[in-house]
Design a protein around this nucleic acid. Structure first.
Lengths: 155, 155
DNA sequence: TGATTACCAAGTGATTTAGTAGGAATTAAC
DNA sequence: GTTAATTCCTACTAAATCACTTGGTAATCA
């Protein structure tokens, strides 16, 4: 499994698209400008997003990108999976040669852990992020209490 | 932020240590054998774990590693942070030149998201994992319902 | 003394990251 | 119909990271 800045770029760009795409498509040049991400790198990320139908491109002057679905139908997990390919590889392909050993024991456990994180991200939609953002002024700290996790206490 | 196989290696090794270290220290050679991780790579991971006092090494014959604290005092987040350095870097160091722009807006939001994940991992201790494991037989699927998250629903 | 272990530092091939470069295809505006 | 704006596509690249190897040194037990 994997969850790095690449996914963050994609989420940031999609959020920009969700916020600024209300009236007409948004160009990658604008997102590049807004978010400080290189244009060609954005193109590559959006190629992946498009293949998963999370965005829809319109060519020519006045073109740009729309969201492929409503922002409430797009989860953060969707976005990250599109660009980052959330593979949680088992070292022992399938179930061979790790029947009772400590290796298999720990890896199924780690897979459970990563699927918990997946569920967490799958329960936050792009629409949630937009609403959380627009409801706040700049100085305020936007808290992110989403569906999945009500009682998070700091360590 | 970052959460890859390197952290998984460390968690796996620590779990092995917690399970097999009841009576006497465990050598890295044993963990290497059990988990299929190269010995020298383990050494590097354990150098990081030792610097955070999560493990304690004993040299010489009959030596090996102990846990540095009780397994209930070590969280998964502790382990991952030790080897993976959980940096959630803000592109605009501090608060310069992103007062109201969309950039800062999205990055504080992403930071919230990553701290949610951090809290999630911080609420699972190594002891939790051990108990979850030992209570099960091999064939069974070990469910991972931990303190932090009671109501996880699949997406 | 010798074996066994942790410790330490440097190097390496493969992969990923974040980006450049250079185009081709589509379409709106002139 | 030409031009400009935009998406789309392929290939390349420097830097970083991953997982590992090599070759040691230091401590400690028998």
């Amino acid at each position: 499994m994997r969850l790095s800045t690449k996914g963050r770029y994609a989420v940031t760009a999609m959020l920009d698209l969700a916020i600024n795409g209300k009236n007409g498509p948004v160009t990658l040049a604008e997102i590049s400008e807004n978010q400080g991400i290189s244009l060609s790198y954005l193109e590559q990320l959006f190629a992946a997003l498009r293949s998963k139908e999370l965005v829809r491109g319109v060519r020519g002057p006045g073109g740009g990108y729309y969201l492929g679905k409503s922002s409430d139908e797009i989860s953060i997990a969707n976005i990250i999976c599109a660009v980052d390919e959330w593979v949680e590889f088992t070292r022992c392909g399938g179930r061979q040669n790790c029947s009772g050993g400590a290796r298999c024991l720990t890896h199924t456990l780690w897979d459970d852990l990563s699927s918990e994180i997946f569920n967490f991200l799958a329960n936050i939609s792009l629409g949630d992020l937009v609403r959380r953002n627009l409801g706040k002024k700049d100085g305020e700290e936007p808290s992110l209490n989403v569906v999945a996790n009500a009682d998070s206490q700091a360590a």
